[in-house]
Design a binder for these strands. Structure first.
Length: 931
RNA sequence: GGAUCCAUAGCUCAGUUGGCUAGAGCGUACGAUUCACAUUCGUAAGGUCGCAGGUUCGAGCCCUGCUGGAUCCACCA
C-alpha cells in the first residue's frame, strides 16, 4: 500500500508543485496573443471560454504576509475552480517594485553604510536599487508556489518591466496632449525625512494632543489675538482672517496689523474660513504651509512665503531663526513672544496630525511644483460606467462607496521625489534658450539627463511617478492589451484585492482602464477585509501578534492554511483568524487521506477477489455488481502516472471516467459508471449532488467559506461517517471510485496539494487532478435515498438512548428487538454495524424493553425492567417537551389570519407536523405505560 | 461633521428575496477504542439573536430610534 497512515504535507507539496509547473498546466489553453487564421483581420480567439484574474503584485523584495495568504487562497480557489470547469484560465502573477517601501529599505541600508542618496545621481541610484531588488527577488515567488498559486509563471509581470513603462508613457503622453496634465504649485504633504511628497491617500492622520497658543498681533490702538498650533510659521503669515459676519472684528477688516517678531505689516481680511466660534475667531493665514490657508491665499491673492525648507529647517526668516528645525524654532519663537509680551496664553487640545505612513514623521505641508492629473473627466466617466452597473461588487455596498469617493475626488498629484520608480518623461527648457519654445516637453528618453529638440536644450524632471499611476494600468499591462490586440482576457473576469485599497487602486484602475481602453478593466470586484488576530485585534509588529503564513504552511501544510483562512470569512469584512481553523483544515486533509486509503484498500481487495472468482468461473451473488467494474480499473492500473499530462489541451479531462464514458457527448450530465444497490449508496449520491450544487452556487457568489463548509460536512459527516461505514459491509467498488473522485475534484480548488497527492496515489486515476473535469451529477434512486435518511435517524436514536441509559458500555450490553418493520428487517447487518449492538432479534410475543419512539419504527432496546424504570424521568421530560412544541403548532393553526394568509404549503406543513407530534406523543405515552 | 459596516452559544462565525423547532467549528461535559484515521468515533449541555418601539398571520432578517464597536473620507487656527 502506497498510503501512509497519515498525510504529511511536507513530503508531497513541493514535488507536486514542481510536477505541475514542469508540465506547464497553469498556462491558459486559449492563446493570449492575437490569432487570425482565416486572414479576415479579426481575432479568432474564443472569448467565451476564458477566465482571467491578475494578482495584486506583492513586493518583489519582501516576504508574504497573512493578507497575501488570504489573497492567494481566494484567487487560486477561483482559478482552480474555473480551470476544472473547463475554462481557459489565466492567473497572471506579478511583482511590485514597491517604489516607496523598497526605497525606504534601501535608503536605510545606504545610511548604515555611511552614505546618503544625495551622493549619487538618479540613474545610478536606480541601477543600485535594481540590483538590490534582484538579489532579494525570488523569495516572494517561492512563497507563492508554497501557497499553491496556480498562476502562469511565464507571464509574470514586474511593475518596472519595459512594457509597463511603455504603456504608462503612452497614457501620460495622451493625457498631456489631451490637456489633462498640468504643473502646479500646490501644497503637498511632504515627508522631511524621505524628502518626498505623498498623495492624500497615503497620509495617515492621527489624533494627537497639542497646544493652542494665543498670540497678539498689534495695531495702532489695540491688538488682535490669533490662536495657532504652529507659532513657528508666523513668519510666513500673509494675513489675519476674520469671519465677515463676526461683529467683533468688523471695523478691523482692511486694516493692517504688525506681524510679531518680524518687521512687517499684514492685512486683516474677511474670509468664511475663519470660524467665529473657534478660539478668538481670528486666524493667521500662512498660504505656503497650510492647506486651508493656501485656499484662503488663492481667494485673496496673498503672497506664498515659504519659511520651511524641504529638509525641515527654517528659511526666509530673521537671521536669528534661520536654519533652526521647526521644533527648535517653535521654542525660540514662543520664548521671544513672551519676552516681547505678545504671548496671551495657551490651552491643550486634541487635533489630527498628518504622519508619514512609513516612518511616522510629521508631514509638512509644503509648497512645491508638481505634476497633477486633472481628474474631473476621468472620474465622471468612471461614475457613469459604475452607475450602469458594469462592474459587480462583492460586497455590493462598495459600489456606492466608490461612486461617492469619485464624486469628491481632487486633482491627483503624481510626482514623487524618489529615484526608485518610473521616471516622469518630461523635460524643462533651460532658461537661456529661445523664449517662444514651450517650457516643458514630453520625451521618452528619460535615461538622458539632457536632450536637444529642434536645437533647444531641455533637462529632465528628476521626479518619478506615483506608484498608483502605473499600477492603475495593471489589468491592461498584465493581459498585454494593446490598441491592436483586443483581447479575450480583457476585461478581467474579476479583480480580487484588499478593501483598504478600494480608493487608491481599484478606483484608479477603473478610471485608467476606461481612459485607455474604453472598457471597464474587470467585470467583478471582490474585496477582502483585514485578517485580524484570534481576538479580533489588528495584527501589528508592536503588538507582537503577527502571524506569518509560511510558518503555518510549514507546520500544517499549504492546504490546511488555505482551508483555515477561508473559513468564516466573508467579503469586505475584517475578521479574526486563529491557528485553530488551520488545524481543522489539517484534520480534514488527513481525513480525506484516510478515506482514500480505505477506498483504495477495498478496491485492491475486490480486484483480488475478482481474479479468484474469474479463475474459479463463479462469483458470489453479492459481489457480482462490484466485480463488473473491476476489469476496467485493473486495466488502467498498469498505466504509468502522469502520462496524460498536458491532456487538458487535447481532451477536456485529465481523467478517464470509470467505464469509458469519456467518449460520451459533453451534454451528458448524469454519471452512470456504477450501479447503486442499497440505500446508503443512493443517499450519498444525492448528498454529493447537493454538495456540488452548493459549491457551484457559492463560488458564483464568491462565498468561499460556505463552499468550504459544505465540502467539509459532506466529506466528513456524510461520506466518512455514514457512507463509508456502510460500505464496510457492501463494498461497491465502482461507486466508491466514482464518489471519491467526485469529492476529491470538488475539494481541489481549496486544497490542491492533498487532493493531487491522493490522485497520484490512487491506482485507477490518471493525469493531474488539477486539470481534471468538474464532476457530473451522480444518478441515484430518490426513494431509496430517503429511506436511508430514515435509517440514519433510527441509528441515531439507538445511539442516543444507549448513552442516556444509566451505566456505561450500554452498546455492548443490550440487544435490539424489532417487530413488523421492513426497514429494520432489511437492514439488520447495517444497523448492527452502525450501532455496535451485539444482536438484533425478531420480537417473539409481547413487546418488552424500551420502545424507540422518535424514529417511528417498531424497534425496542432489550433492557431489563429496572433500567427502563430509571429511564422513566427522561421519557416524561421528552413527552412534555414534545407537548410544548405541539402547543405552539396548535396555537399557530388557531390563528385564522395564519390559515388565511400564509402560503398553502406552509399551512399544510403545519398540519402534517401536528399529526406527527400527536403520533409521537401517543407512542411515547404507550411506552411510559409499558413501564 | 459625512459615509459604510458590525453586534446571534464561552470563543470565531453561518443564517441569500421574512416561514426557524436559530446552525457550524472550536471549547466544555460524558462515553468509546485492536478491524482507514486519537489529526479518531459516539452522545450531550449551551442562545428571551445589543436595547426599545413599529410593520406583518409570522421578524435574527424589513422600518424608526438608542447603545456599544470597527473602518474609511473630510476637518480641526
Amino acid at each position: 500500500m502506497k498510503f501512509a497512515s497519515s498525510y504529511e504535507p511536507g513530503e508531497y507539496e513541493s514535488d507536486i508543485y514542481g510536477a505541475w509547473e514542469v508540465s506547464d498546466i497553469f498556462a491558459p489553453s486559449t492563446p493570449t496573443v492575437p490569432v487570425d487564421n482565416n486572414g479576415d483581420g479579426k481575432d479568432d480567439r474564443d472569448n467565451k471560454n476564458t477566465y482571467s484574474i491578475v494578482m495584486p503584485p506583492p513586493n518583489a523584495n519582501g516576504n508574504l504576509h497573512i493578507g497575501h495568504g488570504l489573497t492567494i487562497a481566494l484567487e487560486d480557489s477561483l482559478t482552480r475552480y474555473y480551470r476544472l470547469k473547463g475554462k481557459s484560465t489565466w492567473y497572471i502573477p506579478g511583482a511590485d517594485h514597491a517604489g516607496f517601501e523598497t526605497w525606504v529599505v534601501y535608503e536605510r541600508n545606504l545610511e548604515k553604510q555611511g552614505h546618503t542618496r544625495f551622493e549619487y545621481d538618479r540613474n545610478e541610484l536606480y541601477a543600485r536599487v535594481w540590483d538590490f531588488v534582484a538579489e532579494q527577488r525570488g523569495n516572494m515567488e517561492l512563497q507563492l508556489r508554497a501557497l499553491g498559486a496556480s498562476c502562469s509563471w511565464n507571464d509574470l509581470t514586474f511593475t518596472l518591466d519595459e512594457n509597463v513603462i511603455d504603456r504608462v508613457y503612452t497614457t501620460f503622453e495622451k493625457m498631456w496632449n489631451d490637456g489633462m496634465i498640468y504643473r502646479g504649485e500646490k501644497l503637498v504633504n511632504f515627508c522631511p525625512k524621505h524628502q518626498t511628497a505623498f498623495a492624500d491617500i497615503e497620509v495617515e492622520h492621527k489624533d494627537e494632543k497639542g497646544t493652542l497658543w494665543d498670540i497678539a498681533y498689534t495695531y495702532d490702538g489695540g491688538e488682535i489675538i490669533v490662536s495657532t498650533t504652529r507659532p513657528e510659521t508666523l513668519f510666513g503669515d500673509a494675513a489675519v482672517a476674520v469671519n465677515p459676519e463676526d461683529k467683533r472684528y468688523k471695523d478691523l477688516i482692511g486694516k493692517t496689523v504688525h506681524l510679531p517678531l518680524a518687521n512687517k505689516e499684514i492685512p486683516i481680511i474677511a474670509d468664511e474660513h475663519a470660524d467665529p466660534e473657534y478660539g478668538t475667531g481670528a486666524v493667521k493665514i500662512t498660504p505656503a504651509h497650510d492647506f486651508d490657508d493656501f485656499e484662503v491665499g488663492e481667494r485673496h491673492n496673498l503672497e506664498r512665503i515659504k519659511v520651511i525648507a524641504e529638509n525641515g529647517t527654517m528659511i526666509n526668516v530673521p537671521e536669528k531663526y534661520y536654519g533652526l528645525t521647526t521644533a527648535e524654532c517653535r521654542k525660540q519663537v514662543l520664548k521671544d513672544l513672551k519676552a516681547a509680551d505678545l504671548f496671551r496664553g495657551e490651552k491643550q487640545l486634541v487635533h489630527s496630525v498628518a504622519h508619514c505612513y512609513k516612518c511616522g514623521t510629521v508631514l509638512e505641508p509644503m509648497l512645491k511644483e508638481q505634476w497633477f492629473v486633472d481628474v474631473e473627466k476621468l472620474a465622471s466617466v468612471a461614475i457613469k460606467h459604475l452607475e450602469k452597473n458594469e462592474i459587480k461588487f462583492h460586497p455590493a455596498n462598495k459600489q456606492k462607496v466608490l461612486i461617492n469617493y469619485l464624486k469628491n475626488l481632487k486633482d491627483w498629484n503624481i510626482s514623487r521625489q524618489i529615484p526608485w520608480g518610473i521616471a516622469i518623461p518630461m523635460f524643462r527648457r533651460v532658461t537661456d534658450a529661445a523664449t517662444d519654445e514651450p517650457d516643458w516637453i514630453f520625451d521618452r528618453r528619460t535615461h538622458l539627463k539632457e536632450i536637444e529638440v529642434a536645437g533647444v536644450k531641455y533637462v529632465r524632471d528628476e521626479d518619478t511617478f506615483d506608484t498608483w499611476f502605473s499600477s492603475s494600468h495593471w489589468p491592461i499591462v498584465c493581459t498585454n492589451w494593446t490598441e491592436d490586440n483586443f483581447n479575450p482576457y480583457y476585461p478581467l473576469n474579476v479583480m480580487e484585492t484588499g478593501a483598504d485599497i478600494l480608493f487608491a487602486w481599484v478606483a484608479r484602475m477603473i478610471m485608467m482602464g476606461l481612459y485607455v481602453t474604453g472598457e471597464v478593466p474587470f467585470k467583478e470586484v471582490y474585496l477582502h477585509g483585514l485578517v485580524l488576530d484570534a481576538h479580533g485585534q489588528k495584527m501589528s509588529k508592536s503588538k507582537g501578534n503577527v502571524i506569518n503564513p509560511m510558518d503555518l504552511v510549514a507546520k500544517y501544510g499549504s492546504d490546511a492554511f488555505r482551508l483555515g483562512i477561508l473559513r468564516g470569512r466573508s467579503a469586505g469584512m475584517n475578521q479574526a483568524f486563529s491557528e485553530q481553523s488551520v488545524i481543522s483544515g489539517r484534520n480534514l486533509c488527513n481525513k480525506l487521506w484516510n478515506i482514500s486509503r480505505l477506498v483504495q484498500s477495498i478496491v485492491d481487495e475486490s480486484s483480488m477477489e475478482f481474479e479468484n472468482t474469474f479463475i474459479e468461473g463463479g462469483s458470489e451473488p453479492g459481489k457480482a455488481r462490484s466485480s463488473a467494474e473491476t476489469p476496467v480499473a485493473d486495466h488502467r492500473r498498469s498505466r504509468a502516472k502522469n502520462e496524460l499530462v498536458r491532456s487538458s489541451e487535447t481532451t477536456p479531462s485529465g481523467r478517464l471516467l470509470s467505464t469509458g464514458v469519456s467518449d460520451a457527448p459533453q451534454e451528458e450530465s448524469i454519471s452512470n459508471s456504477y450501479s447503486t444497490d442499497n440505500m446508503g449508496e443512493d443517499w450519498i449520491c444525492r448528498e454529493i449532488n447537493d454538495c456540488l450544487k452548493q459549491v457551484e452556487v457559492s463560488m458564483k457568489n464568491y462565498r468561499f467559506a460556505e463552499a468550504v463548509e459544505v465540502l467539509y460536512q459532506t466529506i466528513w459527516d456524510k461520506y466518512a461517517d455514514w457512507f463509508l461505514e456502510s460500505q464496510k459491509i457492501f463494498k461497491n467498488t465502482g461507486l466508491l471510485k466514482q464518489t471519491l473522485e467526485t469529492i476529491l475534484i470538488a475539494l481541489h480548488p481549496f486544497a490542491p496539494f492533498v487532493t493531487e497527492a491522493i490522485w497520484q496515489n490512487l491506482s485507477w486515476t490518471d493525469g493531474f487532478i488539477a486539470t481534471a473535469k468538474w464532476p457530473n451529477k451522480l444518478k441515484f434512486d430518490p426513494i431509496s435515498a430517503a429511506e436511508f435518511e430514515s435509517l440514519i435517524s433510527v441509528v441515531s436514536e439507538v445511539r442516543g438512548t444507549l448513552q442516556a441509559l444509566p451505566g456505561t458500555n450500554n452498546a455492548k450490553k443490550y440487544s435490539l428487538l424489532y417487530g413488523n418493520d421492513s426497514l429494520v428487517e432489511d437492514n439488520l447487518l447495517l444497523i448492527r454495524t452502525l450501532t455496535k449492538v451485539p444482536a438484533i432479534n425478531s420480537l417473539d410475543g409481547q413487546p418488552r424493553g424500551l420502545r424507540l419512539a422518535l424514529a417511528n419504527h417498531e424497534l425496542y432496546l432489550d433492557v431489563p425492567e429496572k433500567v427502563v424504570t430509571e429511564y422513566k424521568d427522561a421519557l416524561t421530560e421528552k413527552i412534555l417537551s414534545v407537548g410544548r412544541e405541539l402547543d405552539a403548532l396548535n396555537a399557530r393553526m388557531a390563528n385564522p389570519n395564519y390559515v388565511e394568509k400564509a402560503p398553502e404549503h406552509l399551512v399544510k406543513e403545519t398540519k402534517d407536523q401536528i399529526k406527527e407530534k400527536e403520533s409521537l406523543i401517543s407512542r411515547l405515552k404507550s411506552q411510559l405505560e409499558l413501564i
